[in-house]
Design a protein around this nucleic acid. Structure first.
Lengths: 350, 350
DNA sequence: CTGTTAGCGCGTTCAC
DNA sequence: GTGAACGCGCTAACAG
């Protein structure tokens, strides 16, 4: 049966070489498709024979052995703390798309304990999405010892690694201020876990913006939910059933805003007409839905992140000319779409 | 500054050996804590000195080099197609918990294209959560050439790899039949993408069970939603607002059932009293909520999966005595909890 | 009992 | 197109 030679052992380059009647060097050149400097240097018939044997044996170069020699693993590691968060999925998607054409495989580390793992395992570049205070030292040390790092953290200085920042505060203020152009009764939809009424940058932007506008706080207008989409839906239903119902909702995440639009629709209130709804984060779902979601957020965040990471992964690990570790600071924009259009004195809802 | 010697290069075992004034063998023995056979053959002072130098240099053994020698990567790969699915998160969580004490790192592969990746990258064991028909050959070849595989797939025979099965059909029937003991007006809550009214094992169980019970199909009772939690919430609200509203809901996933309970509660219908709700999957969330969710599903699925995977990862890669590749077939159970209690002729809702 | 020597196992790559 | 050194950590066999 056309099938042959499988001892259950992984074939090595030497087995291929022997069966093809050539040297290991030749096999290596044929399969990796490169030759020191000069032209092809390997004849077509030989190349064909080698390829055939390799295929028959099911030979695959051993990445570990290759890494030891070249110092490159063709791998990037993504350390993601909240794998269930759509944010993480967007990171993964963007990096995968950018990595595929380069032959680089993204490996995801779901554990928050990247310190231990990165101590032993290495990759061409590593993205870390959260750094606890106690981990800052470890981070610096890793960078010192040759690990290429890209870190997402507000308020961390680059010390041998890149820092990506995305300051939410001002952007969130823009969102609330946008609503203030046409509304006075503005509710806030925010997960109870994220600090809610107490802390949380995104909530604080709401309460501060209202205060500045001279609007008194109204506890009824703070819709806390459990972090799930269904919870946001239910909380919105409650808000819009209030006797003096809000005419606008500021949701601290896009996915909550999406649920809010659905909930409003269900009650018979059209988003962008009867009630304005704005989100935070500028995720793709909001752009695609109907009515499209007004939101604030960085522009092309994930794409830029992925490009930086892969640029770092592919550029030779020059500890010397390290193309200066940089801070990538993302400016936030306001995206005025259908769910919360521009309002003026003529169209305001109060 | 206590700090020293960081050329930005990763320190090797030889650097440590030189600075500590010992041989690389000694360093290796000290840091790996093992010695051929006899007791600890390294004196305390030497060990201390080596450890000190290693620490100062930030030395970490190079996993690639270690792997090439030992054949073990201390890594398992989880190839997960639907990373956003709670099911995947449960797999990750269970494997992480089981792997940590063994010093094994789970690496997640978010891409569906495990064939290409596994061709080059290797791990002590690999879990694959979905096999497309065209990938079956590749699977067999990988197993032949020494990759330790655990595959989740209904209807695939083990050929050098383990197969985990979890036949949903009969279990789902049990769920619907449980409802049939006390109900006639039974709705089905199912994502439109999963085949909905057309295909889908879980939906088919519903329509077949009803047919057998002599209950005519009622299109109004099929609550299709978009796959999101908010969508399930909205669909439930619609179902329970029907003039002849259903007294029971069969949800094809636990998370949809959870959303349904919340939606019912919101309308003033108590789950398990006014309306019975049952899910599918036996996820942990359902067990913890109040009222607790009745459901069907395998018992300790993720725990058993994790244990099998790690057992395969740690047991020496003996292609010969491969402890027979097995089929792990998960029997489904009915978990009668509060949201859909036992009903008899005395307590039935019709 | 303590520590060293030397060679292994990979794929890569320079010099011939 | 080949030979052989190389980079890494591990470990059997040996020397003091």
């Amino acid at each position: 049966m056309g099938k042959a030679s499988n001892t259950g052992v992984r074939p090595t380059i030497r087995m291929v070489a022997e069966l093809a009647g050539v040297s290991t060097a030749t096999v290596s050149y044929v399969l990796s498709g490169r030759r020191g400097d000069a032209g092809p240097g390997v004849s077509d018939p030989t190349a064909e024979k080698v390829k055939a044997v390799a295929e028959r044996l099911g030979y695959r170069p051993n990445q570990a052995a290759r890494a030891i020699r070249t110092g490159r693993t063709n791998t990037v590691i993504l350390s993601l703390t909240m794998l269930s968060d759509p944010w993480s999925l967007s990171v993964i998607e963007a990096v995968q798309k950018a990595a595929a054409p380069l032959g680089i495989t993204p490996m995801i580390l779901g554990d928050a304990d990247w310190v231990k793992v990165l101590g032993t395992h290495s990759a061409d570049a590593v993205f870390v999405d959260a750094v606890r205070p106690g981990q800052r030292d470890a981070l610096r040390k890793l960078a010192e010892h040759g690990t290429t790092l890209v870190v997402f953290d507000e308020g961390l200085e680059p010390e041998g690694f890149d820092v990506i920042r995305s300051i939410a505060g001002p952007g969130c203020r823009m969102a609330v201020q946008h609503l203030l152009h046409g509304h006075r009764r503005i509710a806030c939809l925010t997960p109870a876990t994220a600090g809610g009424a107490s802390g949380g940058t995104r909530y604080r932007a709401y309460s501060e913006a209202l205060m500045e506008a001279g609007i008194p706080e109204n506890e009824d207008y703070v819709g806390l939910f459990d972090g799930t989409s269904a919870g946001a839906y239910a909380a919105t239903t409650r808000l819009l059933s209030l006797p003096d119902r809000p005419t606008a909702i500021y949701a601290t995440t896009d996915f909550a805003a999406v649920a809010a639009i659905n909930a409003a629709q269900r009650i018979g209130l059209a988003a962008g007409v009867d009630v304005d709804i704005i989100g935070v984060g500028n995720t793709v779902e909001g752009e695609r839905m109907s009515p499209s979601l007004s939101t604030v957020g960085p522009v092309d965040f994930f794409g830029k992140l992925a490009r930086l990471l892969l640029q770092r992964a592919t550029s030779p690990t020059t500890p010397d000319a390290k193309s200066e570790p940089a801070v990538l600071d993302f400016p936030w924009h306001l995206f005025v779409r259908e769910s919360a259009p521009h309002r003026s004195s003529a169209t305001r809802l109060y």
